[in-house]
């Protein structure tokens, strides 16, 4: 049962990620990324992180990606045009990427050979409560700093998005 679910979600995630690259229209890329995020939320549920799974849906799929789709609709994005300016990217890129993948997988296989070091007991209980407690005690300072970061981001977005009166658009 677990394996079936894992391969289902992993398959959706991989298919979505490949489609993101393959698709020439940005809106379809965005939709496949939403599919990846949904599949990842499913995997998080399997890993006993239901709070993170739901926040993934709310924040990533429901807010960030909606923003992407919104902007894509606003600028009426057309399918992208390939200019093929760099020959190097075409020739050297794929081998280097494969190398990167092989390297990461090799390290992972070496470090964590199919063993299952899971301690489910440690993650049982009220997920949200535990995260909340950690967030407001041990990680209080980073939490406050991120709130300032968000404030700065909002102000930055407003300043950038504001139309100046002397603009001739």
């Amino acid at each position: 049962m677990d394996a079936v679910l894992f391969f289902l979600f992993a398959g959706i995630a991989l298919a979505g990620a490949i489609n993101l690259i393959r698709e020439s229209h940005p809106i379809y890329s965005a939709l496949s990324l939403v599919a990846v995020m949904g599949a990842l939320a499913g995997l998080y549920l399997m890993l006993g992180a239901e709070f993170i799974a739901v926040v993934q849906i709310i924040v990533y799929a429901g807010a960030i990606m909606v923003l992407f789709v919104f902007v894509l609709m606003l600028v009426n994005a057309a399918p992208e045009v390939k200019l093929d300016r760099s020959k190097m990217a075409k020739n050297v890129g794929p081998p280097l990427l494969t190398l990167l993948l092989v390297e990461i997988v090799a390290v992972l296989r070496g470090k964590y050979p199919t063993s299952d070091l899971v301690h489910p007991s440690l993650l049982s209980g009220d997920n949200t409560r535990q995260i909340g407690k950690l967030l407001f005690s041990k990680f209080l300072l980073p939490f406050e700093v991120t709130s300032i970061l968000i404030l700065v981001a909002i102000m930055g977005a407003v300043v950038l998005g504001k139309r100046r009166p002397d603009d001739s658009r």
Partner: peptide
């Protein structure tokens, strides 16, 4: 599921 599978999936993504 071994944890390494998740990690490999993450690497591929």
């Amino acid at each position: 599921i071994p944890v390494s599978w998740y990690l490999i999936l993450s690497a591929v993504l």
